[in-house]
Amino acid sequence: MCRSRIDSVVGGILAVVSGAACVVVALIFAFLIVDSLPAITALGVRMWTDGSWHPADSVSAGTFGMAPMIAGTIAVTLGAVALAAPLALASAVFCRYYAPGAIAAGYRRLVHLLAGVPSVVFGFWGLVVLIPILARLKPPGPSLLAGILIVGLMILPTIMLLAESALAAVPESYVLGGVALGMGRWAVIRHIAIPTARRGIVTGVILGGARAIGETMAVVMVCGNIIRTPHGLFDPVRTLTANIALEMGYALGMHRSALFVSGLVLLVIAVVMVAATTAISRYPSACCDAVV
């Protein structure tokens, strides 16, 4: 195709506008780093080694340990993924291989709706319905467990929809081969479909985990927000994201800067997870090559 003069001009303009996305990413990094610098230079490793978080405007007056909140974030995320991943995989397998067409379509629509429910509504439901139930089991109610249940529910659609499209991409000939060998339905799924779709499923789990790490509102509303490393499912916890949401409104000086450090940590984690999913989808896995 020969490109006319106007095309090169328009193409140039569009390319510049397209740079906006890159500019925003650069600005996010720049502003988070700039606003984090006072805390990073003044506190350094204290942000990891201080056992507690009692922030103050000046360095000497407070303690700035993020460790209990990092522990909270890890606990909520691992719990939510452990809860959601098996259910999501079962849901995907259900839609793909077990449910009759109409039920599968209805179920898929339901999961789409679930994916669209705002986190603040999940949090609200957790607050008024789930927490009273948990409080009856074992007080106080707002707890790590509540966070795991709510966040797990929230990331289920992400994992399920990605796992299902991965299962949909499994070549029909693989499945037919299994059937011809006399394998049962579950055996085909377990030994052929899921291993072949492994990459898509893992991508879904990573993206679900990333959502869990970044989830804020629902966690603020159901986790109790006490800054302490959790020792059991019924302990209240505060995550990194919740901490920013709760304190940013009144934080000044060193305190504000320390909150930006935790934002920077979250940003770096997000970038690493995005890079991981990109790497997984780009490089051919040994398993698929061997089968073909």
């Binding site: 988070l32 994201t241 920013i244 909150l259 934002g263 979250l266 997000a270 995005v274």
Partner: peptide, 13 residues
């Protein structure tokens, strides 16, 4: 990357 950034980080930004 933009799609993966948590919303609270957008809030800080």
């Amino acid at each position: 990357v933009l799609a993966g950034v948590p919303s609270i980080v957008f809030g800080l930004f």
